[in-house]
């Protein structure tokens, strides 16, 4: 229970700090810059270490066909 509370408090602070950074940003990067960041993210090593799909529709189709569940990981590229 104590560990769960500590994890929750830590997550709350992390979210707070991320939010503070986002909300204090005055200027959004250009679409070109955002696209470059996305491309770099998609080249990450972990995506090559297992059979990840980054296509939502294709992942659901595969799950239906295989009868498996989808393990989904949400991340971002617009911010480090």
């Amino acid at each position: 229970m104590i560990r769960r509370r500590a994890v929750a408090a830590s997550a709350a602070l992390a979210f707070f700090l991320a939010g503070a950074a986002t909300l204090s940003a005055q200027q959004e990067p250009s679409q070109e810059e955002l696209a470059q960041r996305r491309t770099k993210k998609l080249e990450a090593q972990f995506l090559k270490s297992a059979a990840w799909s980054t296509d939502y529709d294709a992942a659901l189709k595969l799950a239906k066909e295989s009868g498996k569940l989808v393990f989904a990981y949400f991340t971002r590229s617009y911010n480090p």
Binding site: K41, A50, S66, A72
Partner: peptide
């Protein structure tokens, strides 16, 4: 990688593109 064979892996990237 071994464990993930029992699921379909999906990674979503919020890009703001």
């Amino acid at each position: 990688a071994e464990w993930s064979k029992s699921v379909v892996l999906f990674c979503h990237v919020t890009s703001r593109v």
